[in-house]
């Protein structure tokens, strides 16, 4: 059984000045090596819950455990070094004046040696293809490149858990492939990835587990194949499965396993 990485116990969050209970008693355990996608409509509590994993938000009620330890007395720095968080909007994350500085800043903050910082940066620059823009001002970059940079700057300090909030928004095909390589690298190293996404094509093809949230609670928690099988529940949660899954729904018997990608569809219907 894989090691427990994150666990929440009856997690409740009420934002200040609001009567809205953004999380209403969430119990969730995430294990090492998983690629977990959290899906659900806007306002379902997706971002609220993951912001508890690195201490940006604190529980109103309930507990959050990181690697088995209660996080109540942990600082944001202690939590975020192990649980790296990439914001949805790169403009909310970037603040340095060169790409290199942006990549190095967190590692420096976490007291990595100069040699370690350089080595980690070089690896990430290579993997994310950032060599040509290393001296550029991040704010002069286009949106997609900024987004790639924010992922890269978190990878530099090698967190054991990587949280990505809407990582594919605005990404082109090249960016999506690069992101998939990052997920593979994390997975191969036994690390954990948590993705918040509305991009069901990406979720279906790249997750090992999907947690569906609605109104501050976990509504469903299963493999993507199980999640995308139940058409009624998907409709109720206003989740639109991938186009190819929908086509297979039309052609086939509901009781069968769902199709998650074009290649699976082709294998199924090839004569």
């Amino acid at each position: 059984m894989a090691r427990e990485v994150i666990r929440t116990e009856n997690l409740v969050h009420v934002y200040p000045n609001g009567n809205v209970r953004a999380l209403r008693g969430v119990n969730m355990t995430i294990y090492e090596g998983e690629i977990v996608s959290i899906i659900g409509q806007n306002g379902s509590g997706k971002t609220t819950i993951v912001r508890h994993f690195n201490g940006l938000l604190r529980p109103t009620e309930g507990k959050v455990y990181l690697f088995g330890e209660d996080t109540a007395n942990k600082t944001v720095a202690q939590m975020s070094q192990r649980c790296g968080y990439v914001f949805q909007n790169p403009n909310h994350q970037i603040f340095c004046t060169t790409v290199r500085e942006e990549l190095e800043i967190a590692a420096k903050y976490f007291n990595f040696t100069e040699e370690e910082t350089r080595k980690n940066c070089d690896e990430v620059i290579e993997m994310m293809n950032l060599k040509d823009i290393i001296d550029a001002h991040p704010m002069t970059l286009d949106y997609t490149t900024k987004k790639v940079l924010t992922i890269a700057s978190v990878l530099v300090f090698k967190p054991e858990v990587l949280i990505l909030d809407e990582p594919t928004g605005g990404l082109d095909e090249v960016g999506r492939r690069m992101l998939t390589n990052v997920l593979k690298m994390m997975h191969d190293n036994g690390h954990t990835v948590i993705i918040i996404s509305h991009d069901m094509d990406y979720v279906a093809e790249n997750s090992t587990r999907v947690i569906m949230m609605a109104q501050g609670q976990v509504q469903d928690d299963a493999t993507p194949r199980e999640i995308f099988k139940d058409q009624e529940k998907l409709k109720f949660s206003q989740i639109d499965p991938p186009q190819i899954t929908n086509l297979d729904f039309y052609l086939t018997d509901r009781k069968e396993d769902s199709i998650l990608s074009v290649s699976e569809f082709v294998r199924k219907y090839e004569k």
Binding site: V262, F265, Y269, E270, K271
Partner: peptide, 17 residues
């Protein structure tokens, strides 16, 4: 590096059979 709609992709890949 441009994706096709998934249904078009599937139809083209299946066109031999």
């Amino acid at each position: 590096f441009v994706r096709l709609p998934q249904v078009a992709d599937a139809a083209i890949d299946l066109s031999k059979s």
